[in-house]
Simulated assay, not measured.
Amino acid sequence: MPSDLDAVVLVELRDAPLSVDEVLDAVRHPACGGIALFVGVVRDHDHGESVSALDYEAHPSAAETMRSVCEEVAASHEALRVAAVHRTGALQVGDLAVVVAAAAPHRGQAFDAARALIDTLKTRTPIWKHQQLVDGSTEWVGLP
């Protein structure tokens, strides 16, 4: 494994639009032959309800939790580089909500790390979704 790598290269919460290219570029390295990306997009439905928009709110510890998850996944999945960026604030249907990437020497390692990264981020990071439904009602998703 190359010694010039910092495994966690990008971890951010932001209220501005996300860039897949930024996350992809962050994890690129000559030692990595596989890069796997996951892009979460705001969809127009959830649990049988039509969604018109949503807001993401994050606990003050969310960025620190995201960094810890990234470090754990990099250490346990042979990923040489990982990155995760999540939106906060108001989003519309079709907006990017989260982008994660994992880079590893081989594709299987990258796929495994990327899946573990998004799955663990979703279960451990204190980010909550307040959905506006087409019928005018709202609902919170992800509250403890």
Rank of each mutant, 00 (worst) to 15 (best):
C70D: 06
S50R: 12
S76I: 11
G48I: 15
D44T: 13
C70W: 02
A36K: 03
T65R: 06
G48H: 12
A62W: 04
G48W: 14
S76L: 13
H45V: 09
D46N: 14
E72N: 11
V41Q: 11
P60L: 09
A36I: 12
Y56S: 01
H59K: 13
T65Q: 02
Y56I: 01
V39S: 06
M66G: 00
V41A: 01
A53H: 11
A75S: 15
H47V: 12
H45K: 02
V41F: 05
E57G: 03
V42H: 01
V73E: 03
A74Y: 01
P60I: 07
A75T: 11
A62T: 09
R67I: 10
G48Y: 14
V69D: 05
V73R: 00
V42K: 05
S61K: 04
A53G: 14
G48F: 14
D44E: 14
S68P: 02
A36P: 10
V51Q: 00
F38G: 02
E72W: 05
A74N: 04
A74R: 05
L37C: 08
Y56M: 06
V39L: 00
E64R: 07
H59F: 02
L37M: 14
A36Q: 08
T65L: 03
I35N: 08
A63N: 01
A36F: 07
A53Y: 07
P60K: 00
E49K: 13
V39G: 03
A53P: 09
S76K: 12
V42C: 03
A75R: 15
L54D: 05
C70A: 15
V39P: 07
E49D: 15
V41D: 06
E64A: 08
A53L: 07
R43K: 12
H47N: 13
D44M: 02
P60V: 06
S76Y: 05
S50C: 06
G48S: 15
T65K: 03
T65S: 00
S52E: 12
R67P: 05
M66A: 12
A74S: 11
S52N: 10
R67L: 14
